[in-house]
């Protein structure tokens, strides 16, 4: 029995030593965002009043982020939790939030922000069957973060969330939101100017993550390498896609960094199209740190891929958008 008692004491020792330790207080609103895009907006709106951390890394596949135990700690200490929603993070966020026991950031709590609120989703599945896709999103396509109009809505949602958890900073956040909206306006003009020459461009994407972007900037998605989201391509699907690409004169193949280069390169060899590696979330190496940088990078890369200069010649009197904080 002695060894049994010793075992019990040993097992409880860590609890006895540490269970009573209080969490650290920083005096700032602790914001946890699932993706860097949301973290960027929270930083822009929250300024010095917030401490923001993103869980997923830039350019990472949203549907397959490994849930690390360190995420538990971050969420358990958060005052505000931001998620893309529309089931984008369904594989890893719900169990984390449930396990954290932080009432503030659970759905319905004061600090929970579903950033997709107010966004009109597209491509909702016609039926809830896995025959439809491997990555099935019942609410619709969750990759709305590549559309500036959607990100304006997200910014407002984040601002509302910050005002809820830190009412004293309401005026501060709203002022910064207004400044951010101005930056949006300037940047959007710039992006639409860059996209003008890309209107009607036919592209093939690996995954169905470019619908919102394409709709906003007048680009046409002629097909996807995945026959259904989350399903690896079959030879027959690739043969069909090859025909489509030739028929539709597809010039660009968009591949997210986490997908293999093999199939896009094979298609490019067969059709003369150009493979462009583009992340669908901010913070990926090479695409800059912020969401504005990401949009710049995407549009410049697409222009380069079709043989245009990265930026169109400036119209007289047009100023470049400032990169400083608003």
């Amino acid at each position: 029995m002695d060894s049994k008692k010793g075992f019990l004491v040993l097992a409880f020792l860590p609890v006895l030593l540490t269970a009573g330790l209080p969490g650290r207080a920083y005096g700032k609103v602790r914001v946890v965002a699932t993706v860097p895009d949301l973290a960027f907006l929270a930083r822009e709106i929250g300024g010095d009043r917030v401490q923001v951390r993103a869980l997923a890394r830039g350019g990472q596949d949203l549907h397959a982020v490994p849930a690390r135990p360190t995420f538990l700690l971050r969420i358990s200490r958060a005052d505000l939790f931001l998620e893309l929603g529309l089931d984008a993070e369904h594989a890893w966020v719900p169990p984390l939030i449930y396990a954290c026991r932080n009432k503030k950031v659970r759905p319905g709590g004061i600090g929970f922000v579903n950033c997709s609120a107010g966004i009109r989703p597209v491509e909702a599945p016609r039926s809830l069957s896995r025959e439809q896709a491997g990555d099935l999103h019942p609410m619709g396509n969750p990759h709305y973060n590549l559309d500036p109009e959607n990100m304006r809505i997200v910014a407002r949602n984040i601002c509302s969330g910050l005002c809820r958890v830190d009412p004293a900073g309401k005026a501060f956040y709203e002022k910064r939101l207004a400044a951010l909206m101005k930056r949006f306006e300037v940047k959007e003009k710039e992006w639409f100017r860059m996209a003008r020459d890309l209107k009607g461009l036919a592209v093939v994407t690996y995954h169905l993550s470019w619908t919102y972007f394409a709709r906003r900037f007048g680009i046409r998605v002629a097909g996807t390498i995945e026959p259904k989201p989350g399903i690896e391509p079959t030879p027959s699907h690739l043969a069909e896609l090859l025909e489509t690409m030739k028929r539709e004169k597809v010039k660009v193949i968009i591949r997210e960094p986490y997908y293999s280069e093999k199939i896009p390169c094979w298609l490019a060899r067969k059709t003369g199209a150009v493979v462009v590696t583009l992340p669908n979330t901010a913070g990926w190496n090479g695409a800059g740190k912020t969401w504005f940088d990401l949009m710049d990078y995407i549009l410049k890369s697409l222009r380069k891929a079709v043989g245009l200069p990265p930026e169109p010649p400036k119209a007289p009197g047009v100023k470049k958008a400032g990169e400083g904080k608003g």
Binding site: L86, P121, A124, P125, R126, S127, L128, P138, M139, G140
Partner: peptide, 15 residues
């Protein structure tokens, strides 16, 4: 079934 629901819904299937 749910396909119908998806068509009716403004928020996606099931709602």
């Amino acid at each position: 079934g749910p396909g119908r629901a998806a068509a009716e819904s403004s928020g996606g299937a099931g709602f």
